[in-house]
Amino acid sequence: MSEVEELSVVDAVDAGSTPAIVIDGVSKSYGDVHAVQGVSLSIGQGEFFGILGPNGAGKTTLIEIVEGLRDPDAGRVSIFGLSPHPRNPALLPRMGVQTQKSAFFTRLTAREHLETVAALYGKDAAAAQRALTVVGLDGSANVRVTDVSGGQRQRLAIASALVHDPEVIFLDEPTAALDPQARRDLWKLLRELKAAGKTIVYTTHHLDEAEALCDRVAIVVAGKVVSLGSPHQLVNAAGLPTRLLVAVDRITVEQARAIHGVDSVTVEGGSVVISSRNAAKVLAAVAEVAGLDGVQTRTATLEDVYLELTGTEQQ
């Protein structure tokens, strides 16, 4: 498996732009816990790269090693050809980091917090104002950081990562705790950042989001990359069945089972659900029995691939 992954890494880098980030054989253990085990991958400049995986899979440890916050036990990381660890002041202004736990200066307002962060990067108050506007927090600029709502905290944390106009942006579960509208607003922002040529590395639990936004994703389970590629590639490669939903009064379970190429048949929510890896052929057979009116087709999503991969690995 890992050989396949490495090949696809090389392909992606050769085909795409020069890598912004190269992770080479990185491992990190805490006592008996092997948080990250021999992860290698490259992320191209301008790429939107997702790191997916269950809680405790080592995503945050991996991303913190890349950011230079943790020193790996083995392997090396380079960002724009520079090592992030030990602390590298030449590299830091080119990186923007939003952490899971939002860090804000005590008892300051949103604007004051951002102005402080801007100044730490040697930027002026205008930079803070721009970041505030980009994330849509103008209306809450003068609210104390402790008093802003959950969604606003998230956006303020992202603004803190953008204030100095970095080239590569790390986001750790940026849409956790956001309501659906706020999440879509953030997608828009992330797409704009990508359009502006930023390299974005982010972790998420939302598979639909990764599918909608990411150029490539790596699925991490138990500290290892178990799958790497574009969401489309991963869905195709997984060879998961397509599901056809036919109203119960149009076809019986027995009729459905009789169709050649059907893997399984269940009844869910008023529909006979037919799973098949040969959807085209089965669909033709269903058309003969029940007609195609109202037949719904559900192809596998990244979420199915993810559940398949993380489920197997955890057993």
Binding site: E67, G68, L69, R87, P89, L92, P93, M95, V97, T99, A103, F104, F105, T106, V117, L120, Y121, G122, S160, H164
Partner: peptide, 9 residues
């Protein structure tokens, strides 16, 4: 916050 500052120059 120190982590945030750590990531700035």
């Amino acid at each position: 916050l120190l982590r945030l500052i750590r990531l700035t120059p």
